[in-house]
Amino acid sequence: MELLQISKKELLEFVGTLVSGPLDVFGVVAHDGRFAYDKLDSAANLRLDFDETLYSPKQYLFPPKDPVLSYTPGDAASCAPVYAEKDQAIIGVHPGDMAAIAMLDKAFTENKIDAHYCTRREKTTLVGIYPTKPGKYRFTSSMIKPEEPYLAADAFLIDMGDDSYTIEIVTDRGKEFFSASAAKPATADGKAKAEKMKTAVKDTVTLKIKREDLPPFLDGKERHPVWETRGAKCFSCGSCVTVCPTCYCFDMLDELDLSFDYGLRFRTWDACVLEPFAVCAGGHNFRTKAADRIRHRLYRKQKYLLEKLGLAGCVGCGRCKTACVPDIAFPPDIDDDLLRKEAHHV
C-alpha cells in the first residue's frame, strides 16, 4: 500500500478546492455539541477529530427515500429505471462504518446485483479516518477484522498526533483523488509511526464473546427470557435500525405527482423492529411481539448477516445505545444478559 503524508493545513486546502468543484463532498461537522455527517459547503467545517456521529454515512449510498423507477401512472410499459447521477466523496469514515459499507457492498451485489446501489457506489470516493477519540460505546475491534474496512475504502487518513496526516492509498481511485493534493510520499519513520497511531485510540467497550463464536453462542437462545424482558420496554420505533450503519432492509413505495403525468417508485428505509414489518397480504403478522422483533434484529446483527455475507451485521459503533430511549438495544448489553441468565440457569 502506498503511503503519503500531508499537513493538516494542506488537507484543508485540498478539501476546499473539492468543495468548490463539481463533486458533492460529505464530511463530519459539529452539530449541537455532537457530530453529524453533512454536505460540506466549506472545508473549515470539516471535523476529523469526532468521537462518533449521530448517524452513519450509509445515507449517502443507500438514501432513506431513493427513486428506483419513473413511470406514467398506470402504464407498465412506461417504467424506466432511475439511477444516481452525481459524483460524490465522503471524507472521514471510521473503520467500523467503512466495514459496514463493505457489508452493504456485499449485500447489494451478492446473488442478484442491485444496479441502483452500484451506480451510486461507483460514483463515490470513500476516505476513511482512524479515530482520534474513543467513542462513548465503541466496540468495533470486537466486531470487525482490521482488513475489512479496506474492502470498501479508497484511502484512509491517520492523524499523526502532530500537524499532519498519513494517507494510506488503497485503490486507484484513491490515488487519483489525492493526486491533486499537496501530499508527498511518507518517510520510513512516518510509516512506522502511522501503523502505531492506527491503534492508539482504544475501544471503550469489549465484547465478551469473539465474533466467530457469536453465531453458535446465539443458537438455541431464541426463546430466552431476555427477549420478553427487553421487548416489554421496546417502542418498536426503529431508532436502533435507522442509526445502524449496516441495516439495509427497505420497503417500496409508489408516489404520484399532483399532475398525474408521472410517478416514482421509491425504495424507502424500513426496519424489522417496526410492528408492520412482517405483515403479509391478508394481515397475518409473522412477528407480532416486540420480543420476536428485537430478537430478530439482534440475530441479524450478530449471526444471520455474518453467516450470509461473511461480514458482520454489527460493526460496534454504539449508535444504537445512544439512540434507544429505553436503552434496550445495545448488543453487548444483550449478550451480557444472555451470558448472565445462562449462568443463572445452570
Binding site: Y55, F235, S236, C237, G238, S239, T242, V243, A271, L274, E275, P276, A323
Partner: peptide, 8 residues
C-alpha cells in the same frame, strides 16, 4: 409506525 422513524 412512530414519529421516531421519520425523525431519525
Amino acid at each position: 409506525y412512530p414519529v421516531c422513524v421519520e425523525c431519525k
